[in-house]
Structure formats: structure tokens, C-alpha cells
Amino acid sequence: MSDLITADLVDLDLPAGDKREVVRSLAERLVKAGRVTDLEQFLADIEAREAQMPTGLDGGIGIPHCRSTAVTEPTLGFGRSSAGVDFGAEDGKPADLVFLIAAPEGGGSDHMTVLAALARRLVRKSFTGELRSVTDPAAAAGFIAKEVSA
């Protein structure tokens, strides 16, 4: 099993746009890395999850996520947006940090523990704070990988 995230899955300067466009651009990175086999299927699954309940969190964080048959292994795409992307958070703030969480359908629970660990980090101020200040994709990926394996 490879790392949850690598440098080419990080985009520290997301293109401006609505959440659909931003998610698509991050998802394309997942496709390029061979972790998503069918872009349209994956985006439809993300869309379906968003429709249940928006994934924006207070404090400028968006966590679009889904389980999808188009995903080969648990993967995180991370992006930062200077313009901000509205993920429907209750505080109304657009997200500047976007975590695109991709989980394989029917993955065993050991696959999922890494995502559980990631989710737990997302509510820690120190974790998101570090990701706001990091300047280099490789450093961002390294930091996240280290945190979730701790």
C-alpha cells in the first residue's frame, strides 16, 4: 500500500472556481497518479455525497469525500485556494483548505484506518495551521503522511 498522499497530489495554488471545478482539478491529479480509474464516476460519487450534506467545515475547510468503485486505494488530494471555495460550511466561510478524500468501495477496515487517522487530524488546529503555512508540495505531502502514520 502506497502513501496516502504524495507531492503530485498536492496543489498549493488551486485555480479559482466553484467547488465542482476545484474538485475536478484535484481529482484529475488522482487520475494521473493512477489512483482513480474513472474520473466521471468518481466525480459523480463525490457529488452524491455532497448532496447528502455539504462537507464544508467551520474555519475554512472543505472535505469532499466518497467511497467509489473508481478508487483503487485510500488517497488524499490536498489543495489550497487563495480565492476560497464555498463548500457550504455553517459559518459561511469559503474553504481555503480542500481535502479530497478518496476511499475504495468495499475496502477492508485496515484500509480505512488511515483515513480515520486523517479525519482525526483535521480537527486539530496545529495540523491545519501547519498546512496553511507550508510552502512546498513535497513538504505538505511529507507532513501529512508523517502525521497519519504516527
Binding site: R49, C66, R67, A103, L115, A116, R120, L122
Partner: peptide, 13 residues
């Protein structure tokens, strides 16, 4: 949570 991937664990934390 519905997907059982993110919010469940964030809420626990």
C-alpha cells in the same frame, strides 16, 4: 456519518 469516512472520526476526535 453517512459515508463513514471523515465526519465520524473528526467528531470523535
Amino acid at each position: 456519518c453517512p459515508a463513514g469516512i471523515a465526519h465520524t472520526y473528526m467528531a470523535a476526535e
